[in-house]
């Protein structure tokens, strides 16, 4: 795998992360379901997953950048698995709506597990690390991926403030903090 191909794959990863975060927003608004603190922590882990690819785009692929993504993916999988286990008892309908048969946290666990496997797979290709220190030349495709994921993360800052305000999010949120005064 050439450094150029690795950069393109990292940009695609950023688009994937942005897609997951945007989809969570769409379901939150369309189904009028407020994310719980554990759900929000899984979104935080998806945002953390994006730091490694951004470093790879800016400085070129390095194992240490992939290590950051692996740490974020493992943490996200722990968060998601905790929520899966909270609802694993027979008869428990789960938290929120199911999408294609699985709840969001189950999909989140699958995504984080897939990320761990994909990052491990991409680390197998040593040729991408052949020119350390050479910052890759980026096109619009890669730059747009970075700004998209930064924008979606910034939007999450506002969304969490709208939901929880200046205090700790409730365990089982039922209304937006910002709408409670109206």
């Amino acid at each position: 795998m050439t450094p150029r191909l690795a950069v393109t794959l990292n940009a695609l990863g950023l688009y994937g992360i942005a897609l997951v975060l945007v989809a969570a927003f769409v379901f939150q608004v369309a189904l009028q379901e407020l994310p719980c603190p554990l759900c929000l922590l899984q979104r935080v882990a998806f945002a953390a997953l994006a730091v490694g690819p951004i470093l790879n785009l800016r400085f070129g692929p390095r194992p240490s950048h992939y290590a950051l993504s692996l740490l974020a993916a493992v943490l996200g999988a722990v968060f998601a698995m905790r929520q899966v286990l909270l609802h694993i008892a027979p008869g428990d309908p789960g938290y929120g709506s199911a999408v294609l048969g699985y709840h969001y946290y189950t999909w989140a666990f699958i995504c984080f597990a897939a990320a761990i496997v994909l990052i491990a797979a991409i680390l197998l290709f040593d040729r991408q690390f052949s020119a350390p220190g050479d910052a890759p030349r980026l096109g619009l495709f890669e730059k747009a991926a970075v700004w998209l994921v930064i924008g979606v993360t910034a939007a999450n800052v506002l969304a969490v403030f709208a939901e929880c305000g200046p205090s700790v999010c409730p365990d089982n949120p039922v209304s937006y903090w910002i709408l409670q005064g109206s």
Binding site: A47, A50, I54, L68, V146, V149, N156, G165
Partner: peptide, 29 residues
């Protein structure tokens, strides 16, 4: 608010990484 701060910190980490402050990005991460 706690998750808002986390999102804010990771957004700052991404910006630091993108603006070339690698050590700062690692520290913030």
């Amino acid at each position: 608010m706690d998750q808002m701060i986390l999102f804010l910190l990771f957004a700052a980490t991404m910006l630091a990484a993108w603006l070339g402050r690698r050590a700062l990005a690692f520290g913030l991460f």
